[in-house]
Amino acid sequence: MPAVLEANHVTIAYEKRAERSRLLALQDLTLSVTAGEFLAIVGPSGCGKTTFLNAIAGLVQPTAGTLTMDGRPIVGPGPDRAMVFQEYALMPWLATWDNVAFGLELRGQLRGEDGRRRVAQFIELVGLRGFERSFPHELSGGMRQRVGLARALVMDPRILLMDEPFAAVDAMTREIMQTEFERILSEAGRTVLLVTHSIDEAIAFADRIVVISSRPGRVQEIVPVDLPRPRWQYDVKAHPRFGGLREQVWRALQSDAAGGPGDRREAAP
């Protein structure tokens, strides 16, 4: 399988002007996501997960190392990458239909029947038919995140980035949404990069779990998840191998907490 996304020794540092120091967010991160793969990145808060996603989305440039999509370096945002956000990030003044169409409209792809049909198709896919004219504040958290998913999928991205997509919904909704999203995405054969701090969520979703250490973020361990798919058809947590996987990820996170360098900052030269 060819790699869709490749990160080669990626280091990202921020200049902190006020303190005249450099904040090392990510250090020497190397990983790749192959076509059709679900990769989850798990790590403690402040491990640079969001920074990494921003870099893939093209909002920040790596300080060192290379980041490529289908072999071409990432220089800015592009239609081959779309994101589902933690706090939904839906435009509050747009109804469901317009929020889903947001990316197409920005890129001028909404003209003609084709774009409109796509929007309708993806609203249907996430089960929001009948809510086209509802505004985000009229929808529940779960429904809002479906709008977020449709908005991303309608772009037909090569890779779907998910930034803790269920962090803002309640526990019960989260369980339902996880299986639902897993079903939608695996049926469509999508390539997905999920960033989360929930081990259970990572196991339920991923083919491989990349455990990242706390700041500066580095690959601590890669755990393959060999649970059978489709996973939405059974209770993943009840699977006999679930406990072992959970422990393996947990240990990787623990070893970082025990011996990790913690919050390391470097003085500017």
Partner: peptide, 9 residues
């Protein structure tokens, strides 16, 4: 919202 808009181009 700004981040989302930028990501979507």
């Amino acid at each position: 919202l700004l981040r989302a808009a930028r990501v979507f181009g």
